[in-house]
Deep mutational scan, measured.
Amino acid sequence: MIVFVRFNSSHGFPVEVDSDTSIFQLKEVVAKRQGVPADQLRVIFAGKELRNDWTVQNCDLDQQSIVHIVQRPWRKGQEMNATGGDDPRNAAGGCEREPQSLTRVDLSSSVLPGDSVGLAVILHTDSRKDSPPAGSPAGRSIYNSFYVYCKGPCQRVQPGKLRVQCSTCRQATLTLTQGPSCWDDVLIPNRMSGECQSPHCPGTSAEFFFKCGAHPTSDKETSVALHLIATNSRNITCITCTDVRSPVLVFQCNSRHVICLDCFHLYCVTRLNDRQFVHDPQLGYSLPCVAGCPNSLIKELHHFRILGEEQYNRYQQYGAEECVLQMGGVLCPRPGCGAGLLPEPDQRKVTCEGGNGLGCGFAFCRECKEAYHEGECSAVFEASGTTTQAYRVDERAAEQARWEAASKETIKKTTKPCPRCHVPVEKNGGCMHMKCPQPQCRLEWCWNCGCEWNRVCMGDHWFDV
């Protein structure tokens, strides 16, 4: 396979590697080409510095992935760790964990309700045991953590790749202090920090972006993250068709209702045909949960890209028209025109101005929308079919299609509260000796007794199943 190397943020060049090629071997190839010592090179990928003893497969490097290699003399205490030698983080029983690669970060837990604080980093599902597709590297999971809308060759929703760059020099040479644990960490600028490894760059702020994971991409090709779309790892039924499908869209209502993408497309087109989208002054033209839940309008309007190009163009047109109407304007009634106009409040005669090729020149009556006339309008008909009709959803289907309910059931079956801080902690095999993952707590306690870890627990039921 081919990976592209950008040395000291210059133009990239291809390097041929195998899945079992080590990072140090990659350094040696680059060092020979650039005429520099291999031990002064640092390989940066997806916000993480890659260790010498890791392989291309370990690092989730795919065909035509772009890695950054910078030349920086080692500072005291760094060289041993980078070589894969006596790194205290690798000691058996050590409590410190390697910062998780962005290629394996899962933010789907952050669609849980606000009262489930902490689960994004504490609760991990076991539903990723799908067998890898044919042709994928051994052991590589097909679980997708992110979804994007690819405006490039795909023109559809695709699995996405999370990447990070330095907000100062805009190069992907920043190593994160810690990985993101929720969508806010990724979507809110300057929320996460790190250290830029580019020479002479003092940058410390992280800037995240997404790429389409279905095809090789260049540095400049980015895609918009659709953070309401998630892999259906909890096997929730769709609120409309009641099938279990994946991926799904999880509405931001209190129940976190789930809808499959085909039904979401149908829901949007139906509402669009009836012009029953909601115009929100802050958000724009949007839709609420299909069950009509309060405070559930979709905030990231790129989710409506699921409509496809033709329907999305209609959505944008109707949204612009609705904006004009909300501002007190009118639409030209001549067939084939429909231009938005903003006449004076007491102006009865409205002319669709033909300047700049935008208007048709038609003069019409503001009251009856017919060709302009003197005197009273002959008839004014009330528009028919403008009443909002509820999208029919079966109550039982709505009850079963809740992301929140599956989460709470998982928590109930696989977790116990920490005796000190009461945060839910998952036990997935292993011994009875637990350690609270909350940095402010870190209590060592017994899963069996529910009390602080002691010699009695150690001698009596340390390794009970």
Rank of each mutant, 00 (worst) to 15 (best):
Gly308Pro: 12
Val465Met: 15
Ser378Gln: 11
Thr351Lys: 07
Val258Met: 02
Trp54Pro: 00
Cys150Val: 02
Gln438Lys: 08
Thr237Glu: 14
Tyr149Trp: 13
Leu41Asp: 00
Gly430Trp: 06
Ala406Asp: 15
Arg170Asn: 13
Ile44Lys: 01
Lys416Thr: 06
Asp280Phe: 06
Glu321Cys: 07
Phe463Leu: 02
Arg396Cys: 10
Trp453Asn: 00
Asp130Val: 10
Leu301Phe: 08
Val465Lys: 06
Arg170Gly: 14
Glu28His: 06
Gln165Asp: 05
Val148Pro: 02
Leu261Val: 08
Gln71Glu: 13
Leu119Cys: 14
Asp262Met: 04
Asp346Gln: 09
Ser136Trp: 10
Pro216His: 11
Ser65Leu: 03
Asp86Tyr: 12
Thr103Tyr: 09
Gln171Asp: 10
Cys457Glu: 01
Thr125Phe: 04
Asp280Met: 11
Cys441Gly: 02
Ile122Phe: 13
Arg314Gln: 03
Thr103Lys: 12
Gly329Pro: 03
Phe264His: 01
Gln197Lys: 12
Leu61Cys: 02
Val393Cys: 08
Gln158Asp: 00
Ile236Leu: 07
Phe45Glu: 02
Pro153Ser: 12
Thr204Phe: 05
His68Thr: 04
Ile44Thr: 04
Ile66Leu: 07
Ser378Pro: 13
Glu367Tyr: 08
Arg42Trp: 02
Gln100Cys: 09
Val117Met: 12
Val157Phe: 07
Arg245Leu: 05
Ala363Gln: 14
Arg97Ile: 13
Arg271Trp: 03
Leu301Tyr: 07
Phe364Thr: 03
Ser9Gln: 04
His11Ile: 05
Gln197Phe: 08
Phe362Val: 05
Lys151Glu: 15
Gln311Arg: 03
Cys431Met: 06
Val117Ile: 10
Val111Lys: 13
Pro439Cys: 05
Cys457Thr: 00
Thr410Asp: 14
Val224Phe: 11
Asp219Thr: 09
Leu287Asp: 00
Thr83Met: 14
Ala405Pro: 13
Leu297Gly: 03
Gly118Asn: 14
Ile44Tyr: 05
Thr387Tyr: 11
Val121Gly: 15
Gln178Val: 07
Asn235Tyr: 06
Glu409Leu: 08
Asn295Val: 04
Gly203Ala: 03
Gln40Ile: 05
Arg275Asp: 00
Cys154Asp: 00
Asp274Pro: 00
Gly338Asp: 05
Pro333Val: 04
Glu221Cys: 08
Glu96Pro: 11
Gly319Pro: 10
Pro216Leu: 08
Glu321Asp: 08
Cys253Val: 01
Ser193Glu: 12
His215Ile: 00
Asn81Gly: 15
Gln347Cys: 07
Lys161Ser: 09
Gly139Lys: 11
Glu321Tyr: 04
Thr217Gln: 11
Lys413Gly: 13
Ala390Thr: 13
Lys48Asp: 02
Gln389Gly: 14
Glu409Phe: 09
Pro88Thr: 13
Val330Arg: 04
Ile188Gln: 12
Asp60Trp: 03
His422Ser: 12
Gly135Trp: 09
Leu174Thr: 06
Pro88Lys: 09
Tyr315Glu: 00
Lys416Gly: 07
Cys451Trp: 15
Cys166Glu: 01
Cys457Pro: 01
Leu123Cys: 13
Thr204Met: 07
Val250Thr: 06
Gln155Asn: 13
Asn81Glu: 15
Lys412Met: 12
Ser141Gly: 12
